[in-house]
Structures are given as C-alpha cells and as structure tokens.
C-alpha cells in the first residue's frame, strides 16, 4: 500500500502487479509474453498461458543488425494469437531487462496496448505463484502492424553524434567498470564485443540497477526514481535524452522507467549502444 504522501508513477497503468496478473490470467484479451536473457528459462516453467518471445531469434533480423520488419512482426503476432487490441503483458528474468526490450520493440511497431509486470519473473516466483510447463498454442490472429517507426523512441549512431555536438544529455546505464573502460583491460578475459573501453563523451553514468529493488526486482518508488534521476543527476523530464548500454537491453529498462514512470517526454534508446560506438572508426570516447 502506498502512503497518502507517496507519489504515483507518471503512467501507473503501464505497470501491473503480480497480484493483478494472477486475477486476470484467464482473460482472453490479455496475452502474457515472457522474454528472457536465457531462452531455456521459459521451458523450465512459465506463467500459465504465457508465450515466449526470444529477442535473438524472434525480434532480431537474422541477416542485418536490426529488428524484424513489418511482415515478420505481423507473423510473430499472428503465431502467438496476438490481435491489434490484445493487451500484451511482458515479464522476464534479470529484473525485466528483456521484457522492457521486447516492450520497446513492440512500441516501434505501434502496439500501444502493452504492460510490464513489476518485478517480473523473480517476484512471481518468490511469491510462489503458479508456473507451468504447458505450452498453449493459440489460434492464429490477423494482426495488421504499422511500419516500424524508428524516429520517436530509437536513436542511431548519427543521432548520438548530433546529440553530443549539441551538448544534450546521454545516460550510460552500464556498470561503473564498463563506463570507465576498466573491464576491457583485464588480461585473458573476453571483452564484450568492443575494441575500446570507456563511454560516449559527455554521458552520465546511472547504472540501471540503481532503479530496482534488489529483493524482488521491482522498480523503486516514484520518489526514489525522481531523486536518482532528477535530483542527483540533474535531469529534467523535458530533456532530449538518449540512453544506451552494451546492446540496448539494459537501457530499454531505463528507457521504460524514464518514459512511463517519470514522464520524460523525449527519451530514446540507442540500441547500437557500446558494441557499435566502441567499435566504430572515427568516433570519440571518454574514459
């Protein structure tokens, strides 16, 4: 329960509780989607009725470093029995990194009716709520997607170049060791797919993990998030802001909370992230 003085999230409808989902498991207008870092996890047991959408195999184009296009998205929706008016409720491991990532990709295709389960898989399991290995095959739907819109919530390399030239805000949500480049310098260890360690010039470092409660993976309260982003890091909800990490999954989590929980009007996710920037010829870095 919230106390009388506790602030609400900017858009409280987009975040649902595990209890809400339990009460709505059988609703036909809802499709639960699990999206994980480890795709095997779904098969060990999932929320009853949930389908799995795997970011590597389902959402990524297999030949271009990009997302699938309109036709493949329509096929994916159809295969999972998702209609244009279905409420898609995402959850997953890692405090919902991949759930937020899938949510973000759905938004690129204009699927507005989407929600995230606060706490994701960790909270559901900790509460002893039901899991099943039964995979339901839904009747195919007739989904009509918009053409993917990469302009509003997605940033590309050139957008970031423009952004830093104009002194606008960037957030690097990786760990401080990745931000400073320390992790690429450890002998004998594999790096994270980048030739150089460090961060995009001018980027603030606000690790994604600061926004979640360790025990159950839920987002911190609106007050705590405001303190972290607005007070401690001097950001403003009117800022033109780009977030990034290594490949765009952790930054999807931060993108989600900034846009929906704190009401940032113009925040974009740079999914090329460090694996593109850190490898690109001619792009500056800071350590």
């Amino acid at each position: 329960m919230k106390s009388k003085n506790e602030k609400e999230y900017f858009n409280k409808e987009v975040l649902v509780t595990t209890d809400w989902l339990l009460q709505n498991l059988d609703k036909k207008e809802i499709r639960i989607v699990e999206s994980n870092e480890d795709p095997l996890l779904y098969s060990t047991g999932h929320i009853p009725g949930a389908v799995q959408i795997d970011w590597t195999n389902d959402l990524n184009n297999q030949l271009v470093r990009d997302y699938i296009g309109k036709e493949d998205f329509e096929k994916l929706m159809s295969k999972n029995g998702i209609s244009n008016d279905t409420t898609v409720v995402f959850y997953g491991d890692k405090s919902n990194w991949w759930a937020c990532y899938a949510f973000w990709v759905f938004k690129l295709f204009g699927h507005t009716n989407a929600k995230i389960i606060n706490g994701g898989r960790l909270k559901w399991e900790k509460e002893g709520k039901p899991l099943t290995r039964e995979v339901i095959v839904y009747q195919e739907s007739d989904y009509k997607s918009e053409t993917r819109n990469d302009n509003d919530i997605r940033a590309f390399r050139d957008d970031v170049v423009f952004h830093i030239k104009n002194g606008m805000s960037l957030i690097d949500v990786r760990s401080p060791e990745e931000y400073t480049g320390k992790r690429l310098h450890m002998p004998e260890y594999p790096n994270e797919g980048a030739l150089r360690g460090g961060h995009i010039p001018g980027a603030l470092n606000v690790p994604w993990a600061k926004a979640v409660n360790d025990l159950d993976g839920t987002f911190k309260s609106a007050d705590e998030l405001e303190k972290l982003y607005l007070v401690e890091n001097h950001l403003n909800s009117d800022d033109d802001l780009i977030v990034y990490c290594r490949i765009g999954e952790r930054s999807s989590h931060t993108w989600f909370l900034l846009k929906y929980l704190l009401g940032f009007k113009n925040v974009k996710n740079y999914d090329g992230s460090w694996t593109e920037w850190g490898n690109s010829v001619g792009l500056p870095i800071q350590k």
């Binding site: 870092e37 970011w55 590597t56 195999n57 594999p190 994270e192 797919g193 290594r246 490949i247 694996t275």
Partner: peptide
C-alpha cells in the same frame, strides 16, 4: 549456433576459466 553474443561469451568464459 544462434546464441546471443553475451550468452556465448559467458558460457565460453566458464570453460576458459577452468582451463586457466
């Protein structure tokens, strides 16, 4: 062969750690 980069680095890292 369709493992994500992060996953294959992590799993390969287990074997490399054993070998070291």
């Amino acid at each position: 062969y369709n493992l994500s980069m992060g996953k294959n680095l992590g799993l390969i890292g287990i074997i490399q750690m054993m070998q070291r």
